[in-house]
């Protein structure tokens, strides 16, 4: 794989993760459990979509085929998305949404912190901008995981169920493949596997405070970041997200 292709793939992974999660989180807008959380969810979604514009904008620039960030977001189909399986999982209840957010945020802060040292200054700049937002997100998501985990019997049960359900999707974020190897070789991005030990330590500390038990099984579902096998949920999500551009190609405000 040449470096241009690998860099494009890598940037799509970063941008597709924030795009798909941003869209998922925005699905709560107007119907979160309380007004403050509705606002918080919408703000997190907004940050993630903003980051998407930077990552996919750079991806389009690197690709050099005349596509824009909007083209990549709105006109690719499921098999061209490079988002991890974790972020496309449905929202479930508020606890499940929060657990998905926390697991993502903890990984996100780690990868963005490492990317600030990227040999590609464009990548380092986007990471430096995004990491400030990601750090703010993890403060909230960790806090709520702890409060709900160590809360009532009902909230504890729901948070444990969320962790059990989402845990098998966490491992994919730390998988290495030839794209990652090429990025590491070029000094553009760290090997995902190298981030795991530190992230695991953070997650363990938060789950301990939340009185939640991390499943012992490290089995991980795979196929999102490579695009080989997305779960059925992504296609359904895209029918909503991309509907307007598909029905009215080229429509603008």
């Amino acid at each position: 794989m040449d470096q241009q292709t690998a860099t494009f793939e890598f940037l799509c992974r970063m941008g597709d993760n924030t795009l798909v999660l941003g869209h998922r989180v925005s699905e709560w807008c107007g119907k979160a459990p309380v007004l403050e959380e509705d606002i918080a969810l919408a703000n997190v979604a907004l940050d993630l979509i903003g980051q998407t514009q930077m990552w996919l904008g750079l991806a389009a620039e690197v690709e050099g085929a005349g596509r824009t960030a909007d083209d990549l977001a709105m006109l690719r189909d499921v098999w061209d998305f490079r988002s991890a399986l974790l972020v496309e999982q449905p929202n479930g209840d508020f606890g499940q949404t929060l657990m998905r957010q926390y697991l993502f945020d903890q990984w996100h802060v780690a990868v963005l912190t490492a990317l600030m040292e990227s040999a590609d200054p464009r990548v380092a700049d986007i990471a430096a901008k995004s990491v400030k937002e990601a750090r703010y997100h993890v403060e909230r998501s960790a806090d709520l995981v702890i409060r709900l985990g160590d809360g009532t019997e009902e909230s504890h049960g729901r948070m444990q169920a969320a962790l059990d359900k989402l845990w098998p999707f966490f491992g994919e974020l730390f998988d290495d493949d030839p794209v990652d190897a090429a990025m590491a070789e070029a000094g553009i991005a760290p090997l995902p596997s190298g981030l795991r030990a530190d992230v695991d330590q953070e997650v363990a500390a938060v789950m301990a405070q939340a009185t939640l038990v991390i499943p012992a099984d490290r089995f991980a579902h795979r196929g999102g970041k490579t695009g080989i096998r997305h779960s059925e949920h992504l296609g359904h999500m895209l029918t909503q997200m991309q509907w307007l551009q598909r029905a009215y190609p080229g429509a603008t405000w």
Binding site: E36, I39, N43, L46, R140
Partner: peptide
Amino acid sequence: KVSQFGSTPCKAH
């Protein structure tokens, strides 16, 4: 603090 987020991306409640 009521909420870490507020009426615009730059504010908390």
